[in-house]
Design a protein around this nucleic acid. Structure first.
Lengths: 350, 350
DNA sequence: CTGAAAGCGCTTACAG
DNA sequence: CTGAAAGCGCTTACAG
């Protein structure tokens, strides 16, 4: 492997001059620069990023922890995240839980070992309180409340709930089935804000005197389990006239409805939550609450910027002043960005 | 940041002893080990991977170059790849072309700078001949022919074509529409083996005297363009009675057919190529040619293993013997793994 | 404006 | 079995 030393030797200059040319920092006389560039070309020199990483203690890599990249929601989110990070010259390391038999604990380890500069946490795992706060490295949460000092970004699920409830009430729905994650996530102290849309829908429907049942879908990573769930709904609630669930659930429910010859939307309305491309590829164009992926990704990346800047700050400060620069960050410790959602009318509502 | 030096100081031993304990290599007496471990725990020591990376000139990271992760086919492939790599203690760096405004040139640069140990190339870009061969770092191609020394893995598209043609012939199809990428990719010297399934289908249908038209879909990254394509098919070919295309195309075509009140599969058969979860979430269960993602990912990872081993080999050999260990690899230069596909009967064929 | 030196945090021969 | 030394390939103060 040809290194900077070789270039310096060939060009007849010192190591530091080569470095200055490569990084385009400081002043180098034109003929020096020319000599160095000629040598670089001649030797086909390519700088080794690993040495820089070591010196800077940075990899310019962000880990994105997702349940599974195979799920369209997380694939879409990841695509938008990669775009935002790339614009900041940050690489995206894929850290799926279900696709790798690794808990996010191993990814946090990697963060601690400086294999990445930060983590976006979007998977659905539970940890004892204080776990995330104690990590003291750049972390941003998506749709999770991870504790003090971990900024979070999420869609406005209350708004989503209101949009759905309003649609159902206005169109005269009588019996709504809501499909979502394990009901245990509804506990008061939950770290999953997603469920707020369910709570909002349930409350508003109750106020309007409309029946509403909740059905647990399989875990998010298990795409196939949804078919059984869809069938179960029709069998258990023969008079159901509206179904609300994720894009995937809504697609499968629609398929089952078509198979049973149920007229959509006349006798059954379906509303999808998320609004990925799947809402367009089901048997009909699904009415969907669309999360604003570009805005979500932009907010996550921007929060990550701040976390990384703060991390550099505390690191230097800690080295120089004895390590108690933590308090400086206390002000924004409970910060949360809430992104608006939109109801996109499709062919599955009246 | 607490480093090995601090641990050594606290434990009252030398740097190398700490290193031996951390890496669990060589012999260390039990009380030495105990002292070191106590110090590590006390100081909460975490090894910095960047230093190791530099020393080993390895990052244990593989870049996967995809058109876009938002597409279910590539999301599924990536999920399986991550699983295979994780099992080998390799990380997966997401390198989407469309999701980052980066050409794969920039990713190849990163490979050269040793930010990753290898690349899986699954995007659809064209390069002058010899480009890939000249890189001399671990690269494995998916569904592409990239030239000498770049092993490739692909599904058996001829087989896929035969399965499709047989189904259509046996069920008495009269007018088939094939939807695929730009026809220009069909050139003799193409690096895209995917088109072989089209060619096979066309040939077999022609032999059977069945009409067959080819329609170009938008580029793979543009998920929305497919809707227009689907509509165009029905308008241009009013007597079409079979449509073959990717999962996405098939889903959208099915939706359009249902909307037009066409009876599927009685008057129109639809066959999806790929067999991702999307084949299950359309308006009906799609008949699909399923690519064997686990086998494809396993083959890609295994090829990557060899490429990396060879790379280490040539690097050492080059250093020791003067750099012409390349020929040793010549034997496997045109190697290609071909993975079987399966026809999964669904509700959209007779 | 250029060069010799120290150092990023670890690993691995090589003496003891 | 343990320790002092050199080195991975680069970067950045610091003298000249």
């Amino acid at each position: 492997m040809v290194g900077m030393r070789d270039v310096a030797k060939t060009a007849g200059v010192s190591l530091s001059t080569v470095s200055l040319v490569v990084n385009n920092t400081g002043y180098v006389s034109d003929d020096m620069r020319a000599k160095v560039e000629a040598a670089m070309r001649q030797l086909n020199y390519i700088p080794n990023e690993l040495a820089r990483n070591l010196y800077r203690n940075r990899t310019n890599t962000i880990g994105v922890i997702m349940p599974t990249i195979a799920h369209p929601f997380f694939a879409t989110l990841t695509a938008h995240l990669q775009r935002e990070f790339a614009a900041r010259d940050l690489k995206t390391l894929l850290c799926s839980i279900a696709d790798a038999d690794k808990g996010e604990g191993e990814y946090v380890d990697m963060l601690q070992r400086h294999m990445m500069d930060g983590i976006v946490m979007a998977a659905h795992t539970e940890h004892p309180g204080g776990y995330w706060t104690s990590i003291h490295r750049p972390i941003v949460a998506f749709d999770r409340t991870l504790g003090e000092g971990v900024p979070a970004v999420r869609s406005d699920h209350e708004q989503g709930g209101r949009l759905i409830a309003r649609q159902l009430i206005d169109s005269g729905a009588r019996h709504v089935v809501l499909v979502g994650g394990p009901r245990s996530q509804f506990a008061e102290a939950t770290t999953f804000p997603t469920i707020r849309y369910h709570l909002t829908v349930e409350r508003m429907l109750a106020d309007a005197g409309i029946a509403c049942d909740y059905v647990e879908a399989g875990i998010v990573a298990d795409i196939c389990a949804h078919e059984a769930t869809a069938r179960a709904i029709f069998e258990r609630y023969s008079d159901v006239d509206a179904i609300v669930g994720s894009d995937l659930v809504a697609s499968v429910a629609l398929q089952e409805a078509l198979r049973r010859g149920i007229s959509v939307p006349r006798d059954l309305q379906i509303i999808a939550y998320d609004g990925t491309f799947m809402a367009e590829t089901a048997g009909m164009r699904l009415t969907a609450v669309r999360q604003d992926f570009p805005a979500v990704a932009a907010a996550l990346a921007s929060r990550m910027d701040s976390q990384i800047a703060a991390d550099n700050g505390t690191t230097s400060a800690a080295a120089a002043e004895g390590g108690n620069a933590v308090a400086a960050n206390g002000g924004q410790s409970t910060s949360e960005d809430i992104i608006s959602v939109t109801l996109i009318p499709g062919e599955t509502t009246r």
